[in-house]
Nucleic acid binder design. Structure first.
Length: 553
RNA sequence: GCGCCUGUAGCUCAGUUGGAUAGAGCAACGGCCUUCUAAGCCGUAGGUCAGAGGUUCGAACCCUCUCAGGCGUACCA
């Protein structure tokens, strides 16, 4: 609707140039927006104010010329007025609004989708937790965010792949192996003090127990190195499988699991370093190899290969991101915990060093989650291993509530997650508020059928929808595509959760004031059609967030 | 020290990329079920947008400084 109006205004201004009522000949970017107050119309534009200087006229005078040209020029515009310092306010004809409903019905599941992505290949990499322990609640927020952003981009017409990067190289795997081996030896009766820097969680004991069942005391007799290697492999595999299961229970599936170790096995780390050396971006100093990240705005250069010959994690990152682009992605998006924000400049450096634009790498920082129970913080400590896992949260509050809560806030602001609130089946729980709206609509359809009203949308008389409540609901529906698009390109799923709450609110309000099943068959059909469109929109928006739209509650 | 993020109603947060009189939910208070799901609705109250300057027709939003909180500043991953 906004776009149609924008085109309309542009045409009008060009008309003014053509007949000489306006002289400058240049059209600024036309800002069209929805005024905060309904008295100011459905939309307003500030072009007159922007053009005032070039036209050497007062803003309101320019507005008047444009208004004269626009009046009656389109079946979109019902009336228009000049207001304030030179705004032009537009009141859209109800008929034009009502056409949205037909569009929604026709598009169905595709309602809201756009093609701005133009099939561009984009990869979203997220979670990517080390396979050294189960996912905790912070990973949950990253998972919900990454998954939703991927879905949003898909809805915006991008060709999206979801990827999980497995950090299965590096010395945390040794620590994992050692942790497993020591728990194993403890289990078989040996008195060992478990080191502080080993993984403390009980899941290590489970892994050890598993090994005892399957292999008996076999690893008591082998050299420690062999035992560590075994437990690193076994533990890593087991933990990774557990992570995958937890994610699937959470409704997240990856298209690809990418192993860091494979970068070494395939010689990609080596070749990446060589390429960068060839470009003069990697140099040697004090026996180590350094990447010139300062060329790209980093505080200092970063070590790629240590003086002892061992590569750093950063080396893997160079190879990994090089590989992503080599796989044909035009746009690469990383989702990180916000505590890694210091790594942004050096990763942007890699990408530019590879010859891409800095913006070809998008980075989403997800802030930490504070877990509460009825407003009281739940104690969490990674060191003692007593953190709350994603699985525990999902088991307790359910997948839908968990996802909704994770997505309720902008990802770069900290999030309070109240377990009791998420479970509560009342109006202060936004998840149920939204889902209830969907279930309620389904219920109205059930009731209609019970009363012998068969919904038939072949020839709906939309013009019967003329109450204020009908119209505000229709207007709310019509902005969904813009909301979806904005949420996608800005990586901001929370815009959808807000929109859902607003739409559900409009519906509930409508429901309390307006009868759907009435004595007039034509009006009943029209209202059923309207609610059908609300249900489609609610469901599409929930689906893009990975949340179900229940038929009944 | 330097860098990044945050600061908006009692609480938790939005704020359409610079627009008109700053919004929502919760909490508080007062109403609404013999009619399609009360997991709902309607109303009242609540503000120095951390502070001070600046940019312009116009600033919660952009620039500078100050204050407060968080995070980061490895030849760790």
């Amino acid at each position: 609707m906004k776009e149609q109006l924008r085109a309309c205004i542009l045409k009008g201004i060009e008309g003014c140039f053509a007949d000489g009522t306006l002289a400058s000949g240049t059209v600024p970017a036309i800002g069209v927006e929805k005024p905060a107050h309904p008295e100011h119309g459905d939309f307003s534009t500030n072009v007159a104010m922007q053009m005032a200087k070039a036209e050497r006229k007062a803003p309101r005078a320019v507005a008047e010329i444009i208004v004269n040209k626009l009046a009656g020029s389109s079946d979109l515009i019902g009336s228009l007025e000049i207001a304030g310092p030179g705004f032009i306010n537009f009141f859209i004809k109800d008929d034009a609004w009502r056409k949205t409903l037909a569009a929604i019905d026709q598009a169905g599941d595709a309602w809201g989708k756009s093609s701005i992505g133009a099939g561009k290949k984009v990869q979203v990499e997220f979670v990517s937790a080390n396979p050294t322990g189960p996912l905790h609640i912070g990973h949950g927020r990253g998972a919900a965010t990454g998954d939703a952003v991927a879905s949003l981009l898909f809805a915006a017409g991008f060709d999206v792949q979801r990827e999980y990067y497995i950090n299965d190289a590096g010395n945390q795997m040794n620590t994992l192996g050692l942790s497993g081996l020591l728990r194993y030896r403890q289990l078989l009766g040996e008195q060992i003090e478990f080191p502080e820097n080993c993984y403390q969680g009980d899941y290590m004991k489970d892994i050890a127990r598993d090994a005892v069942t399957k292999y008996g005391d076999r690893f008591m007799k082998v050299p420690q190195e062999e035992g560590v290697a075994f437990f690193a492999k076994m533990g890593g595999d087991l933990i990774l499988r557990g992570i995958d299961e937890d994610l699937q229970d959470f409704g997240v599936r990856f298209d690809n699991w990418f192993s860091e170790q494979s970068l070494f096995d395939d010689g990609k780390v080596k070749s990446a370093i060589e390429e960068m050396q060839g470009k003069g971006l990697i140099y040697e100093q004090e026996g180590a190899l350094w990447f010139r990240t300062t060329d790209y705005g980093d505080d200092k250069d970063r070590v790629v290969v240590r003086s002892n010959g061992v590569t750093t994690y950063f080396a893997s990152d160079i190879a990994y991101h090089r590989d992503k682009f080599a796989r044909g992605f035009d746009w690469v998006i990383d989702v990180w915990g916000a505590d890694h924000h210091g790594y942004v400049p050096r990763l942007k450096g890699i990408v530019q060093g590879l010859g891409h634009d800095a913006d070809d790498l998008g980075i989403i920082l997800v802030q930490l989650v504070s877990l509460l129970r009825d407003g009281v913080p739940v104690a969490m400590s990674t060191r003692s291993g007593e953190f709350v896992t994603l699985k525990e949260v999902v088991d307790e509050v359910g997948r839908d509530a968990a996802r909704f809560f994770f997505l309720m806030r902008r990802s770069d602001s900290q999030l309070d997650f109240d377990l009791e609130l998420a479970k509560r089946q009342s109006n202060d729980n936004p998840v149920y508020y939204v889902q209830y709206a969907h279930a309620r609509i389904r219920s109205i359809f059930d009731t209609a059928r019970e009363r012998g009203v068969v919904p038939c949308f072949d020839d709906v008389r939309l013009e019967l929808l003329q109450s204020a409540d009908d119209m505000s609901l229709i207007k709310k529906l019509s902005v969904y595509p813009e909301i979806l698009e904005g949420a996608a390109v800005n990586f901001e799923p929370h815009r959808i959760t807000y929109y859902l709450q607003e739409l559900a609110g409009e519906f509930h309000s409508f429901y309390n004031k307006s009868r759907v099943i009435t004595e007039e068959p034509a009006l009943t059909q029209a209202r059923l059609f309207l609610l059908h469109c609300v249900a489609v929109t609610l469901k599409n928006a929930l689906t893009v967030l990975g949340i179900s739209a229940p038929e009944r509650m």
